[in-house]
Computed example of a mutant assay.
Amino acid sequence: MDALHTQAIERATKRFGELLAGEFERIERVKQGGKPKDYASLDHITIGILPGDGIGPTIVQQAVRVLECLLADQIASGRIEIRPIDGLTIERRAELGESLPQDVLDAALACDVLLKGPLVTPRPGDPWPNLVSANSLLRRGLDLFVGMRPIRIPDQGIDWTFFRENLEGEYIWGDKGIQVDDDLAVDFKVCTLPGTERLARMALNYARDNGKTTVTVVTKANIVKHADGNFQKIICDVAEREYPEITVQTRLVDATAAKLMDPDFNKDFQVIVLPNLYGDIVTDIAAEHQGGLGSAASANLGTQHALFEAIHGTAPTLAERGLAPWANPCSVIRAAGLLVGHIGFADRRALLERALDICCATERRVVMGFGDGPTSADFTDYLIETIEGLK
Rank of each mutant, 00 (worst) to 15 (best):
Ala287Val: 09
Arg241Asp: 04
Leu42Tyr: 04
Arg364Gly: 06
Asp155Met: 14
Ile59Phe: 07
Val113Ile: 02
Pro129Leu: 04
Thr283Glu: 01
Ala207Gln: 08
Ile358Gly: 11
Gly313Asn: 04
Phe162Gln: 07
Asn266Trp: 12
Ala63Val: 03
Val248His: 03
Glu18Ala: 12
Ile358Phe: 15
Ala257Thr: 09
Asp209Cys: 14
Gly56Asn: 03
Val224Asp: 12
Thr256Met: 08
Val66Phe: 01
Ala134Thr: 10
Glu309Arg: 12
Ala319Lys: 11
Ala63Pro: 01
Pro329Gln: 11
Gly373Met: 01
Asn130Pro: 06
Ile47Gln: 02
Glu170Cys: 05
Gln102Lys: 13
Gln249Leu: 15
Ile49Ser: 04
Gly341Asp: 06
Glu245Asp: 14
Gln290Glu: 15
Arg140Thr: 13
Gly87His: 13
Gly48Asp: 03
Ala255Val: 12
Ala239Leu: 03
Arg201Ser: 12
Ile47Tyr: 02
Ala12Trp: 05
Leu114Val: 03
Leu142Glu: 08
Ile343Tyr: 03
Val248Gln: 01
Leu199Val: 02
Arg334Met: 15
Leu199Asn: 01
Gly177Ile: 01
Ala63Arg: 08
Gly141Tyr: 05
His342Leu: 12
Thr161Trp: 12
Ile172Ala: 13
Lys225Val: 10
Asp53Gly: 04
Ala94Pro: 08
Leu351Cys: 11
Ala350Tyr: 08
Leu356Lys: 05
Leu167Asp: 10
Glu288Cys: 14
Asp43His: 12
Leu301Cys: 08
Thr121Pro: 02
Ile82Pro: 00
Thr219Glu: 10
